[in-house]
Nucleic acid binder design. Structure first.
Lengths: 340, 340
DNA sequence: CTGAAAGCGCTTACAG
DNA sequence: CTGAAAGCGCTTACAG
């Protein structure tokens, strides 16, 4: 086992000073061609690589960014990570991933832990619990210390920072309008409870589309799922007790579950019931029938978020006054087999 | 904006030495109750948190581990990360994620980059290209420098280190035997080319099961997919030109594709054709019919790998001679609707 | 052209 | 009980 070699060791070995070694390796013109070559050859031989931690301490930057997401198992978040990772790597940054598990405490702990020099900036999507508590002190604290934060997807107006979102309201509006255009009028929505920002916005978009088409709003057709582990009954109930011909679900899971349950109850999809989902993930692609859905383009969101963060990091610190931006990533409706 | 406060600033403010501040905050008994309280109160007021990078440099450990995976979009790898993350956090470690994108070069770059002090150890699954090239110098180099590596799932015998695997051969054997027990004899396998270690092992398990039951091996029934983007035709061909009553697919994607194509060709699953997949992911769970599959338990693999790595890190360095272990995570067959 | 010194933020053995 | 010094591994302004 040969431990990593340091400047000090090279200096000693070659009987020169540490400064000389450092400068030689950085191709400083101060150093004679001769020593430079000697040092470089030796360094190469011993496979010298500068210690990143020492560089970080010296430069006060780590070239590492952190992305905090609620859950990695969600395909959407995995695609976002993928987008972040590619852009970050291109720009010479590493990506640290933290999972909040939808928990406020874990989110806080992770941020406080890493804000102490470990990383240069955050990209994050709020946990459910944080959205519910509306407690964002940990985020404003980090920002106050001069560390940039970019929020994506699940964001809040209470924090001023760069953001990357989709227009959830508009996307939901369009999805609903699509169903209406197809001749449906008895359209239900399967959404989440309102403290999840995107659930709320999507519900609003749905309502707006109905209004716009003079379709009376039936509160019974709005299902807000609270418990992610136990929602099948609620959906079954929705389908059984209401006369509906279409469903707009705010995520894949709700969409595929609705299809399964409807089929089991003797309703054919899409003949008897059209279903649109949200998030163009694995489930939508591979379920039978495969699901018409609003594609969020997570890769693009991640890439954009990383770009915004790194731009801020790489620009001279004093431009902090640069105004915060909110980028809206376009969505698109992917038509497949579950609607008619 | 208030920048992070340092020991130096506190010392100056309180007119004591940096050492005194440091010791006070670490509750050293050397310090008088009085100063200790004064310093601690002040530190609390200014929300002092030690700089992680400085600590890392001093302690020569970063409390960060890195997991390198080929693709994050694969549900299996996402579950592994989740397992790693939980154990790591419990033990006070952060997790850095790198994606090799199945590329040898990216794998090498990532490792070399991070081996220079940024992290304490690696957890990794080999990229396809690395397995194909059989070039593992980057890994042995890292190990030689004294940095522990734990490999999982896609491993190699050419590197000595801790490993976490499933018994791919046995799992495939069992899956095939299951089909045989159900009365099938014309069983095809959809596998990957042999340089992917797990593909090879699973094919061997399949062959062993046939032999064991005196079923003659028909080479035409062994399909080895090379190009992940364009394999539908091959599968269609397999089903069309052979008289088969069951398929064992070495991953979810192949399984669901086989089902879709068979259905399209007028074969009913499972009535005319039973299909077993590998990896208990989203696809298997939500496709219709949902798919009988070999569950790999990625969360457990990740947790185990993290545990092995961290144990090695936390144990005194000198036990390096501790023998390397290979842990086998049990798999199980999840029976669902695609087999009869 | 080379090197000693100071510094990034911290800890700890050692003096006083 | 307090503090100066050395050190983790590096860079760079400054002397010589």
């Amino acid at each position: 086992m040969k431990r990593k070699v340091t400047l000090k060791q090279i200096a000693k070995e070659l009987d020169v000073s540490i400064s000389t070694v450092s400068k030689s390796l950085r191709n400083s013109l101060e150093i004679s061609e001769d020593t430079r070559q000697k040092v470089q050859a030796f360094a190469k031989l011993y496979n010298y690589k500068p210690n990143n931690i020492a560089l970080s301490l010296k430069n006060k930057k780590t070239k590492t960014i952190c992305i905090i997401i609620p859950e990695i198992i969600h395909h959407f978040f995995a695609t976002v990570i993928s987008g972040v990772e590619h852009v970050a790597n291109e720009k010479g940054y590493n990506v640290l991933i933290c999972l909040s598990d939808e928990s406020f405490d874990k989110e806080v702990i992770n941020m406080e832990m890493l804000a102490n020099g470990s990383i240069d900036g955050f990209i994050m999507s709020l946990s459910k619990e944080t959205q519910q508590k509306k407690d964002f002190h940990h985020i404003s604290e980090v920002i106050n210390q001069g560390m940039p934060v970019v929020m994506f997807d699940r964001v809040t107006n209470e924090i001023l920072c760069d953001k990357v979102i989709i227009d959830d309201n508009l996307a939901a509006f369009n999805a609903t309008q699509y169903l209406i255009d197809k001749g449906h009028a008895k359209i239900a929505i399967i959404s989440t409870i309102d403290y999840v920002s995107v659930g709320k916005l999507r519900t609003e978009g749905y309502i707006k589309a109905l209004k716009n088409n003079d379709i009376p709003l039936d509160e019974n057709l709005i299902l807000k799922i609270e418990d992610i582990d136990n929602f099948e009954e609620a959906i079954q109930n929705l389908i059984a007790t209401n006369d509906i011909d279409a469903i707009f679900a705010v995520n894949e899971l709700f969409a595929v579950t609705a299809i399964k349950l409807a089929t089991k109850m003797g309703k054919k999809v899409p003949e008897d019931l059209s279903v649109i989902g949200f998030t163009d993930g694995i489930i939508s692609k591979f379920s039978s029938p495969c699901i018409t859905t609003v594609s969020q383009n997570g890769v693009k969101m991640g890439a954009k978020a990383a770009k915004m963060l790194i731009e801020r990091l790489d620009s001279e610190e004093d431009d902090e006054e640069e105004k915060y931006r909110t980028e809206v990533i376009e969505t698109e409706l992917v038509e497949r087999e579950s609607t008619i």
